[in-house]
Design a protein around this nucleic acid. Structure first.
Lengths: 305, 305
DNA sequence: GTTGAGCATCAGGTCAGCTTATGCTCGACC
DNA sequence: GGTCGAGCATAAGCTGACCTGATGCTCAAC
């Protein structure tokens, strides 16, 4: 194999027209350059520079070699930069914020995929409600967050964020299995006297429930609040009350019955958000992994069971 | 710079899926391959293969690097072959300088032959008078030049040049067809009152005319100057004056009459010159082609028509 | 349990290639 | 025309990269 180091020196010699100058630019002594060029000439079997006491004259072969060789070396340099960039992408750190429901269903699969592809990437996961997580994305403490938004409680996104829709999910009404409303064409008004198990106050899940009931002419009696849908469903199973549960959180606990609302097909949307200006190279991969996992969930829809 | 030898080994390892097999194919010991891969990993700062006792598993980074790297190495191999071919003289670049008359008569045939023999050679042609072309040969900007010299205006060649005679040509006197001197035994004195069309001032063609006329006891009245003998002859045909034209430039335009000088058979010599030290392998082929073409012109003589 | 294949690691030797020193040539400049 | 400096070549010596060979580990196959 032609020695690429020698080739680089040759290109520099042709460019500068002098062994000494090439040596200065490349950090060699002129002796080294002289030896390298001699070695290269020996390798190709042709005199590439005619030497005079004070100067050299490149033969046409040298010009041709320098020409093509220069391109090649540039390509090689480019490759090296690519590799460097890639390595930085592979070993970077990505901080993800996510709401609890997503972290048990969507996120694990996506992270598994991500860390299989990028075994050296460091991925940190924080769990919190969108209201808490978004400020962290804005301040840069998180690179990326999964957030949800209810149809009835639309969010406004700060302009500096990129928002990528991941999936839509139905909202299910859950009642105890022995409840009289455990049939599929339930109307919300039928449940106006029930006690409700809702999300924590201030979450958009709770707001959604309030607005929904308001539209049907009543205010729900909130018996208990939890942001953990497993807890919510256990309470339903225990007969404490009824609840509105997004499909992602649905667990099919014995003693519960889930059904869509008859006349108001309600939806919750899940998005990934990140600052548009964030240049973390892992970002793209993470978003792609999330989208891929979610698309496998029936084209981005999670439907009632 | 990433070590290309290591890169080649990496590509082979990815291809074969094994250090040991790559080592066998590349003529190394497996120890060497192991060390090379370790060094490469150290260089890029990432683990490229997960090691198990009996096997390796390439990380995705290794696959990416091997992919692009393979292309690069292939390009480099291609380059090496190009260089080899060029060195053998199949390829390469030859820069030729020639005076206008030669470039329309002698050179095309020789170049046709040359490029038939060496279809990949790149041949560059520059047209200029010997006075301009010789310095370019000396500085190495041209590999080879065709020059002419008049008997009456001999040239001295710099010592570092090799000069190969190509052909000799007669000088013809051209007069308008209806001129009283349009007979074959004209003497120069008969034309001393004519107006002359000469080559540009400073060319040896012009000097030759001056000296020739001086030998016959007069100074020519120069009506017009051009280095393009086609233009010169058109002017003669138009009755502007008479001219001295080398046989190579003779065009037999209607309205002109050409004849040799009766008592002074004048000649112009055409040579190829190149620096003796020039090692361009195409040089020899080019000179041979030129000689061959010129010898076919009646043993190196171009005679009056 | 034994064997063999694959990989890592260590020690040792070789060689490419660098620097340093020296010499030559030639242009520039007094 | 002598001196000086810059550019190139060459010799000598040293260093570091890298290969081989030896050794050891692990695991699969028999």
């Amino acid at each position: 194999m032609l020695n690429p180091v020698h080739l680089r020196t040759l290109v520099e010699v042709v460019k500068t027209g002098s062994f000494a100058e090439a040596a200065r630019r490349l950090g060699y002594t002129s002796s080294a350059v002289s030896q390298q060029i001699s070695a290269f000439e020996r390798a190709v079997g042709v005199t590439l520079f005619e030497r005079e006491a004070h100067s050299i004259r490149p033969a046409s072969a040298a010009l041709l070699i320098a020409d093509r060789g220069g391109e090649l070396l540039a390509a090689f340099d480019g490759f090296e930069h690519e590799v460097k960039a890639m390595v930085q992408g592979l070993r970077g750190r990505l901080r993800i914020g996510t709401f609890p429901t997503a972290s048990s269903r969507v996120v694990p699969k996506a992270l598994a995929k991500l860390s299989a592809d990028l075994p050296d990437a460091e991925i940190l996961l924080d769990e919190a409600e969108p209201e808490d997580v978004l400020p962290l994305v804005l301040t840069g403490e998180l690179d990326l967050a999964l957030v949800y938004a209810y149809d009835l409680v639309p969010r406004t996104w700060p302009e500096e964020l990129t928002v990528v829709p991941l999936l839509e999910e139905s909202l299910l009404v859950m009642v105890p299995a022995d409840h009289s409303a455990a049939k599929n064409n339930v109307k919300l008004e039928d449940l106006k006297d029930e006690r409700w198990i809702a999300s924590r106050d201030g979450t958009s899940g709770a707001t959604c429930l309030t607005r929904l009931c308001a539209a049907s002419g009543f205010a729900p009696r909130i018996a208990f609040r939890s942001n953990d849908y497993e807890v919510v469903q256990s309470l339903v199973a225990a007969g404490v009350g009824v609840a509105l549960v997004p499909a992602l959180g649905y667990k099919a606990l014995p003693g519960t019955h889930a059904m869509p609302l008859r006349h108001k097909p309600l939806r919750r949307h899940v998005h990934v958000v990140h600052r548009t200006a964030n240049t973390n190279p892992l970002l793209r991969d993470a978003v792609n992994a999330l989208r891929e996992v979610c698309e496998n969930a029936v084209g981005g829809y999670i439907n009632p069971p």
